[in-house]
Amino acid sequence: MITPPSSTPFSYVLGLADDALVSAQRMGWWISRAPQLEEDLALANIGLDQLGQARNLLTYAGELEGAGRSEDDLAYLRDDRDFRNVWLVERPQTDFGVAMARLLVFSAWQAELYAALALGEDPTLAAIAGKAVKEVAYHLDHARRWVVRLGDGTEESHARMQVALEAEWPYVEELFGPVDGAVVDPVALRDAVLTTVESVLAEATLVVPQVAPARGGGRRGLHTEDLGYLLAEMQHLHRSHPGATW
């Protein structure tokens, strides 16, 4: 079967790949640190799903670029200025409430994005997204349950969940920023994503934060300092031992 050449830009697919990859790396931090063993498994599995999505997207990005870069080349041999992920996913999340607030926003966004890509005109993205959308439904459900449990829980869990939400909220808007050659217009996802998130917050008796958006710039390669540390850890083995295999 001959597939016609895609007009989808490398940079667009790379952005979506980097979102999933960096989020997966942050999820992995929770292994052995989550509040309970079941949560270790859950966050590891969610991270693994995201890593799988990232691998598929990076492989496709490499094909679009046409410079012979593999998924590993793209994941391990780029510096922070060459990453195109949003700021939402790159900052440390050492508070469980923050992790769940972020996962709620991120999975609600990925759910809408992948659902739209699955019906879109790029057949490769449609195949990747058609698979991912089913996985993300579980991620969103997991985040929703925790946000409701903590938000509508004790006085302390409610207060901490609200603080976590305030911490993440400045990074929501960047998800909807314009991207050159976007297959799915990011702005078009905004209403549906916010409707999902805000309905969960209402159920959790939490207040939608009123905070100014962060400057952002991840899609142009501008990042917080935190991404550099994340990449140092993620890329160290591969860069120190090129070609190493298990």
């Binding site: 079941e38 498994l41 859950a42 599995n45 969610i46 997991h142 349950r145």
Partner: peptide
């Protein structure tokens, strides 16, 4: 007891 089990395809 957990939506996510020992592998991605299983729950506990």
């Amino acid at each position: 007891s957990s939506r996510f089990g020992s592998t991605a395809c299983k729950s506990l």
